[in-house]
């Protein structure tokens, strides 16, 4: 479960401090599929960084599984990311010269799993993400965009995270492939009850989620259920 209590974030530059997030408070229950939508400059990327434990808020509390991680050190945050969070990026961020298997097992390497265990878990995740088994030992840069994003989803799934964060996952894909990727997220949410947060600026993409949180100028302007 995720809980944000009056989260703010400001950046300092030469002209003084610029507030990006102006006190956000919301809750996301386990098993929800939420989209955070907002135009560029709204602060949604900053919010994603905080939710993804890549950054800490300037003030307020961020509770991930009832633990306040707002003032964790870099290395403690790294452990949180490794155990509890799975990222899916717009530009896939796969290691180009490595095999699909190596890419997917990478979080488990940092989690110090044995080689056999890594492969067993990775195979299951790849199957869940819907990648054909014949590609498992291909180099990742030989795959199509849709396949790459499936590999990235599998990589996000391997550590069985409390939260999957997808940052514009369809941004680099054509509409049809994007639809397939989004329905994969839907299936993972419905069938395996993964908590998924989808960050996007497109309303059509956001509507694949069950709930939409709309952000503008660092404030929540809307929070409603699409279905369910």
């Amino acid at each position: 479960m995720i809980e944000c209590k009056n989260i703010t974030k400001e950046y300092n530059n030469a002209l003084g401090s610029i507030p990006i997030l102006k006190g956000l408070t919301f809750k996301i229950e386990d098993g929800e599929f939420v989209a955070i939508i907002g135009p560029s400059g709204s602060g949604k990327s900053t919010l994603m960084n905080i939710l993804g434990a890549l950054d800490t808020p300037s003030s307020g509390e961020y509770l991930l599984d009832a633990k306040n991680i707002s003032d964790f050190s870099d290395d403690d945050l790294a452990v949180i990311r490794n155990k509890k969070i799975g990222f899916v990026f717009q530009s896939f961020n796969l290691l180009a010269r490595s095999t699909v298997m190596r890419n997917v097992t990478l979080p488990l390497i940092y989690g110090e799993y044995s080689k056999e265990e890594r492969e067993r878990i990775a195979r299951k995740s790849l199957a869940d993400a819907g990648l054909d088994e014949k590609y498992y030992y291909n180099l990742s840069n030989q795959l199509s965009g849709g396949q790459m994003q499936r590999v990235a989803i599998a990589r996000a799934l391997v550590n069985n995270p409390s939260l999957i964060l997808a940052d514009e996952p369809t941004g680099n894909l054509d509409t049809k492939t994007g639809e397939i990727v989004l329905s994969t997220f839907g299936a993972l949410n419905r069938e395996q009850h993964h908590t998924i947060i989808l960050i996007t600026h497109e309303k059509e993409v956001a509507e694949h989620a069950d709930r939409i949180i709309s952000i503008r100028d660092g404030n929540i302007i809307d929070d409603y259920k699409v279905r369910g």
Partner: peptide, 15 residues
């Protein structure tokens, strides 16, 4: 970018 990714998926400074 690779360093960023590795950190995002759980690499510590030491790693």
């Amino acid at each position: 970018k690779e360093i960023g990714l590795r950190k995002a998926i759980g690499a510590k400074r030491k790693d």
